[in-house]
Amino acid sequence: MDIYHETHGKGDCRPLVLIHGALSGIGTSFGTILPSLAKTRRVIAVELQAHCHTPDVDRPLTVEHFAADVVELLDRLDVGRADVFGWSMGAAVALRLGTHHADRVGRLVLASVSFDEDGLHPGLLDGIQDLQPEHLHGSEFHEEYLRTAPDPAGWATLVTKMKVLDANLPRWTPDQVRTLAAPTMIVLGDADIVQPEHAVHMFRLLGGAVPGDLTGLPACRLAILPGTTHTTIPQRADWLAPMIDEFLTESNPDH
């Protein structure tokens, strides 16, 4: 499969891979923040199977397949280990890379991620199977797809396949999260689709700060952005870019 990607910026530190959200692409997921991140490092922005520039193939859309494709892309680019920033579905792919391809990951930034569907607000996915492709016509995601996809008529198939993925969301056990080796930064909007309590729980599983422990900063970070919804997280570049840059640079042996 041809895996579309763009490379921006340069630098001696470990490259950063950007993985977009469902039905989205590089532009709608990272158009605002990408230039800031690329000021200090090499950034590799990828588009997953059936999304925007990357064509579809005859297989279902799964987080497992997406993660394997990212590893394949790193192999093609001769990148041994990379940091990864994923948003929404892309964060689930990044988490899968951290738990199942740990040797290819340096640090993780997971924006709007839950390790099981109980982390989402109750009822969030009710009615998702009634979603029709035309319901999204005119949205920024649909417009980006029409501009970039090799077959603009494939939108309906993409939406149909995504509904199957939504009905079979990936799940990690608390033990799998707890044993994640990569230092991880969790990002959430205070009006996000993921419950804040779930993000705090995940933060604790990853070895986040313990109340009363003033011995030092944990390897894991938690950032909850005020006045921010799920879809506006990618627009918070002024807040996120310096936080992400500091987190990725801290104690980076490849910097």
Rank of each mutant, 00 (worst) to 15 (best):
R104N: 01
A91K: 06
V177E: 09
L169G: 09
R178I: 08
H100W: 01
S112L: 09
A167R: 08
L124F: 12
E72H: 07
A45C: 12
S36C: 12
R14D: 03
R96C: 13
G154A: 15
F30M: 11
L217W: 15
E250D: 13
H65D: 02
W87Q: 00
N168S: 13
M243V: 09
H121G: 10
G80M: 08
G25A: 09
L131I: 12
Q49T: 13
H121R: 15
E64H: 02
F85N: 02
Y4E: 04
H53S: 10
Q132C: 06
T215F: 11
G25V: 02
H137Y: 15
G207Q: 01
R14Y: 01
V159R: 02
Y145M: 01
I26S: 09
G208D: 07
F30K: 06
R59I: 00
A181Y: 03
L136Y: 05
G119Q: 09
D175V: 08
E72S: 13
M162G: 03
V159Y: 06
I128W: 04
L110K: 09
A241L: 07
P242K: 06
A68L: 00
P152G: 04
I233R: 10
D238F: 10
L37M: 10
S114W: 13
S114D: 14
D103H: 12
R107V: 07
L248N: 04
P242A: 13
G127Q: 07
N168Y: 08
L16A: 05
T179R: 10
L214V: 13
L74V: 02
D213Q: 12
V84W: 05
E144S: 04
A102D: 07
Q49W: 08
P242G: 05
P152F: 08
G154C: 08
F66R: 07
D78V: 11
L48T: 06
G98A: 10
Q49N: 13
D126I: 05
D83W: 00
A82I: 06
